[in-house]
Amino acid sequence: MSDVTELIHQYLRHNKKFPHVFCPGCGHGIVLGSLIRSVHELALSKDEVVLVAGIGCSGRIAVYVDFNTVHTTHGRALTFATGIKMANPDLKVIALMGDGDAFSIGGNHLIHAARRNIGVTALVLNNSIYGMTGGQSSATTPKGAVSQTAPFGHLEKSFDLVKLASAAGANGVSRGTVFHVNMLDRLIAEAVSRPGFNLVEIMSPCFTQYGRKNKFKSAVDMFKWLKTETSPLESWEQLPPEEKAKRLPIGTFLAGQEPGLEVLYGNLRDDLAAKEQPR
């Protein structure tokens, strides 16, 4: 409990400018801390972990942490991650994306990475808005929410990332929030150690672009919202249907143990090599 901050400082790149670029009250910093604790808990060395980040506020996380990091083009974090994992299956590849990165610009890459079941952990930081570009509506903006491009309320429905990833065939799917940090630590650690494609949706508030326009008085209000409007999956399932619609379930939704694509590929290569040897 007490080593948290010192531990995080061990993993940061101190030649970068601190404090980091995120706005006050942004949840992305908490995700960075949670990721570091999870990696430390799994006893992985810095060289064993590859962090692939896309474009967006969340892409800045890869800059600050002393793993092998790649800052890729918009929406293509998963394609780079797939290549890295296939080339060197011993590495733990974590793709860090925002909601726009993962589900709008890189939506196709995500469903196909899930279908292939490539051994990559995708962390999707969902702040319900395009934060970096000025607060336009994204594919995860809730219906009725006010944004820069929807000043009278958003008319479209939002993606349910958990259902989408489950339907696309991901091995593990879970959802956490930056308020429930201990749970988030556990979800990330489990996702990184599970075989195949794992997606963790992390609800991270964006006060600057989303909260201010949607009747949240401060960043603290958004954290209170995360606290009161979410319930663990087990207790959410006991709720009556009208309550279920209002509350957001968090926890592990899918936990498959199928081997990932890189394992199947390695096995195939070994089989073929064994057949060729007698010649």
Binding site: T5, H9, P19, G25, G29, G33, F179, F223
Partner: peptide
Amino acid sequence: ERHCPDFAISV
């Protein structure tokens, strides 16, 4: 300590 987004507190 766990919820500080800026790693600015140590206990």
